[in-house]
């Protein structure tokens, strides 16, 4: 039975032991089995039990997405795997630092657009700005697209960080509980 399925974008949160090689393990799974990574962020979130949270944005057919979750889940240092896309509503944010090098009218336009997007100016010279913008990926992309027409540009993006909405802590941490 061949099921022709559309590819979907999913945001998956993974809570792992923050031990050497754990990120390589996760990334190696994706490259070794031919899965896609659109975005990946990782940082320690639980300093007591030394656990990190990885947010992965991936695309694949529903069967591939199921495989990805099952493969992640069976890794020894992995504690939780949550598909935020399928488990209720969630929030995604990323942060971008956008440097624009320009002058004259384009400088004023850049400031105006930054204001519209609620981007903060965090560095400035007479011929450049660095803006800090946070939002979901499409907002960040829209901002970058507009800035691109206003001069030479450099961009650094964190990738997506995500969490579920509502009053349940799906992936609780023990932060400070024992100290």
């Amino acid at each position: 039975m061949v099921i022709k399925e559309q590819v979907e974008r999913h945001t998956i949160s993974v809570q792992v032991d923050n031990e050497p090689g754990v990120l390589a393990r996760v990334i190696g799974l994706f490259s070794g089995r031919g899965y896609n990574i659109d975005s990946l962020t990782v940082s320690e979130v639980d300093t007591t039990s030394r656990q990190s949270r990885i947010s992965i944005v991936t695309i694949g057919t529903p069967l591939v997405i199921e495989q990805i979750k099952a493969q992640l889940h069976r890794m020894v240092p992995v504690h939780h795997v949550r598909d935020l896309t399928t488990s209720g509503s969630h929030i995604e944010r990323e942060l971008a630092l956008v440097k624009v090098v320009n002058s004259g009218e384009k400088r004023i336009e850049a400031l105006r657009i930054a204001d519209t997007f609620r981007a903060r100016t965090i560095d400035s010279t007479l011929s450049s700005f660095v803006f800090e913008i946070t939002g979901n990926s499409s907002k960040v992309e829209a901002f970058i697209d507009l800035m691109a027409s206003l001069g030479e540009m450099e961009v650094s993006r964190t990738g997506v960080s995500a969490i579920s909405r509502g009053a349940t802590a799906d992936m609780p941490i023990s932060h400070g509980a024992e100290e």
Binding site: M1, A70, R74
Partner: peptide, 20 residues
């Protein structure tokens, strides 16, 4: 092609990997 399938496996990643 005409079967209903029951799959017992200890590894969840084996489920629906090759055959649904």
């Amino acid at each position: 092609p005409n079967s209903k399938r029951i799959h017992v496996d200890i590894d969840p990643s084996s489920i629906n990997k090759n055959i649904t």
